[in-house]
């Protein structure tokens, strides 16, 4: 238990080891630890941000879905309305057309009747003239006369 040069030797060794540790060993370890700390912090922040974004996206999707539903029902009701309109239009057009056809048919019938009447008139007068002619020609033949009359009568 003598105090001797070992004291100084150990002091020197201590100084050398501490210096070596400070210059060579410590800085890389600390740098790596700090870097890892930063990485972890960044990662956590990133995760937080991602979560927030997801939430936002979900909200956006919900809103879009609601909008789409609204639009679909709008389109549906519009289509319904348009269909009704088309049916109504078609109905009125059909009725008009029917009326027009009916009227045309009435006019045709009347025209036909008038023409028949005209024809009849001309024929009656012709028959009357022919009858008179025959009567005048064969006054003496009573029988013949009778025949003509009969014939006339049948002709009417």
């Amino acid at each position: 238990m003598n105090i001797n040069l070992t004291l100084i030797g150990q002091s020197i060794a201590f100084a050398v080891f501490v210096t070596f540790c400070m210059k060579v060993v410590w800085p890389p370890i600390m740098a790596a630890l700090d870097e890892r700390k930063k990485k972890i912090a960044d990662g956590l922040a990133e995760a937080e941000r991602g979560l927030k974004q997801q939430e936002l996206a979900e909200q956006g999707a919900e809103k879009k879905l609601a909008e789409a539903k609204q639009q679909a029902s709008d389109i549906l009701s519009q289509a319904q309305k348009r269909a009704n309109e088309i049916v109504e239009d078609a109905k009125s057009v059909a009725v008009e057309e029917g009326n027009r056809i009916k009227e045309a048919a009435h006019a045709e019938v009347e025209k036909e009747v008038n023409r028949a009447k005209e024809q009849l008139r001309t024929q009656v007068s012709t028959i009357a003239v022919a009858g008179a002619e025959r009567i005048l020609k064969k006054e003496i033949n009573a029988d013949a006369h009778q025949d003509i009359l009969d014939d006339l009568a049948t002709q009417i």
Binding site: M1, T6, L7, I8, G9, S11, A13, F14
Partner: peptide
């Protein structure tokens, strides 16, 4: 080494 007072005093004096 730490049972040698020279060693402990060497460090303590540094």
């Amino acid at each position: 080494p730490t049972t040698d007072p020279n060693i402990t005093f060497g460090m303590a004096f540094a």
